[in-house]
Amino acid sequence: MNTVTLGVAGRAEMSKRFAAAMRGQAQGQFISFATPELLFQTLTQLRWNILKVMTGAGALSIREVARRVERDVKRVHEDVSALLKAGVFERTAEGGVIFPYDAIHVDFTLQAQAA
């Protein structure tokens, strides 16, 4: 199964993963956001619904994505564009979009803030 981990990772964590990868240690697939706020701003409920129908579906046209989530094509196009810009989706040579993963793991830690 081709799984991607969506999570929050700062520069230090990303540098650590990069260094480990350069040493030949497999790191898996990650899509990282700098802050939890950025993750939630990017992955709204409507975009999460799009992500769910795209997982494991192969390349789809935006019109087909809109049909599957039962939403207006224009609004889905706006959401897909935002996900493309964030690096979550990829554009195909034929003009469609793809989320090349079969599963999603979401990983981040919320810590208590000092008073």
Rank of each mutant, 00 (worst) to 15 (best):
P36A: 07
S81Q: 05
A57V: 10
I31E: 08
N2M: 10
V76Q: 05
A20Q: 12
K85N: 11
G56H: 04
E94A: 15
E13W: 06
D79Q: 12
Q45K: 13
V69R: 05
G87W: 03
A66E: 02
N2A: 12
V88I: 11
A20L: 14
S61H: 07
A19H: 14
T55P: 01
F30D: 08
F89I: 09
L84H: 10
N2D: 13
G10L: 06
T35Q: 08
A26S: 15
R11P: 08
G95Y: 07
E94H: 05
T44Y: 02
T5G: 00
F99Q: 02
I62G: 09
P100N: 03
V106L: 14
L43K: 00
G24R: 09
I98K: 03
K85Y: 12
R23W: 12
S15Y: 10
I31G: 00
L6E: 04
F33G: 01
E78W: 12
E64A: 09
D79H: 15
I62W: 03
V53R: 14
A9Y: 02
G7I: 02
R47F: 10
R71N: 10
G58R: 02
Q29I: 10
M14L: 12
A26Q: 10
L6D: 10
V97P: 00
V80H: 00
K85W: 01
R11H: 13
S32F: 05
L46A: 14
T42Q: 06
G10V: 02
